[in-house]
Design a protein around this nucleic acid. Structure first.
Lengths: 228, 228
DNA sequence: GCCTTTTGCGACAGCTTTGTAACAGATGGA
DNA sequence: TCCATCTGTTACAAAGCTGTCGCAAAAGGC
């Protein structure tokens, strides 16, 4: 969660690679290096970086082709690509950008500006993932995909249980009275029996424990329920 | 998806504004124009554009200050800003990018490249509008040829099912409500029954499973549908 | 230990949501 | 023009979820 942002540097020319890697590292990035396009693909598959710095001219698999491939696959589409090239012509710059690159920098470039552009791309990626996924212990709740996982295993929940868990996970540890839960999960003006909450908590418990692990929901006698 | 992407152009010099507006319009963008920074703020509050083209030097409220304000507020932070400036010095470029601009273009610039950079920013907001192949699992969708293949076999789809699948493939996993799909696939102002979505999802499912493999579309009861 | 209060949970009827076949109208080529 | 294809709507069936009840179990209180 607090790991340093990582940049994958794909450049075949050792001298250039070294100076770039040095500057990236001293700006606080974790630097992954690849010499060829296919080497880059392997690294991306294993440990997806936050940003990719990609030289156009590479032996074997060209930078532009690698970029096209990355942007075609849903898994890698979100990783920003900064294309670096000696090709300064308008047609080349446009081609690079049309192929899916998120920025295009022409050699010789200003190192300070390039670092600034890396940070720009990073700004996009980092905060984007926060806020959509709630995590607590080994439970993961994704608001966007409406999925819940526990220690990797999928947990199947009905709509009400999903909302109930969302409520708990937004404030882990906090004790919710049945009335508070009715309010938040069912809505202010819908009348249902207080005891209905118990049944749904029971169902949520069952689903969560079936995925493995202890019951993460705590009953607070006389008050209500809490997560963890 | 059905509505044209919109660009807000903030530039006080009439001649430059005109030529930019002309080029943006002929590239298919809906162009909003503002002369001053505060005018721009009003427009953004009323009809948030997809991208903002912002001149650094503006009377009253400078471009850089407007950029800073936009990026400080959560509501407008997501709108990409391309800063345009005569200030080509490294310090200025870095300062523009550090202030929150998503790209920085120096005058005089290549109009074709600028348009390409606008489209780059647009891709973030509305992924995949032209000429891209989307892939997810064994499904391949080619926006250029309007063809869909599954594990090599061609999948025949009607126009509506094609747009529906495009929508799903742009953000695999994400749950779309029926309303969101109506908006993106049918268009903001066309009225069709909510249940019509179900029928088309059914048809898409049938076409995809006939090509072999499991049903890749997930029903999220009470919410909508998602791919994978 | 015994009584009272609170909670857990299986069962179930009723209800809401979703899947899908059928159909009539629209559209666009040949 | 006819024919093939695609559309949106409807009706009905199937699936899945919900809320309530009742009784057993647990937790306190004394």
């Amino acid at each position: 969660m607090t790991t340093r942002p990582s940049v994958l540097l794909v450049e075949d020319e050792p001298a250039q690679r070294e100076v770039l890697a040095y500057n990236l590292a001293s700006d606080g990035f974790e630097v992954l290096e690849a010499v060829t396009g296919s080497e880059a693909e392997l690294i991306i598959a294993e440990t997806p970086p936050d940003v990719i710095l990609l030289d156009w001219m590479l032996p074997e698999l060209s930078g532009i082709e690698l970029c096209r491939r990355l942007k075609a696959r849903a898994e890698t589409r979100g990783i920003p690509v900064i294309m670096i090239s000696a090709k300064g012509e308008e047609v080349d710059r446009v081609r690079g950008l049309e192929t899916g690159a998120d920025d295009y920098v022409v050699k010789p470039y200003s190192m300070v500006e390039l670092m600034a552009r890396v940070r720009v791309q990073l700004r996009r990626v980092r905060p984007a993932t926060v806020g959509i996924v709630l995590e607590h212990g080994d439970i993961r709740l994704d608001m966007e995909t409406h999925r819940v996982h526990r220690a990797g295993a999928e947990v199947r929940l009905g709509p009400t249980e999903f909302r109930l868990l969302t409520c708990f996970m937004e404030r882990p540890g906090r004790v919710f009275t049945r009335e508070a839960l009715l309010d938040r999960v069912w809505g202010r003006d819908i009348y249902v029996e207080t005891r209905t909450v118990d049944v749904h908590v029971g169902r949520l418990r069952k689903a969560l424990t079936e995925a493995g692990g202890d019951d993460p929901i705590r009953t607070v006698r006389g008050s209500g329920y809490a997560l963890g």
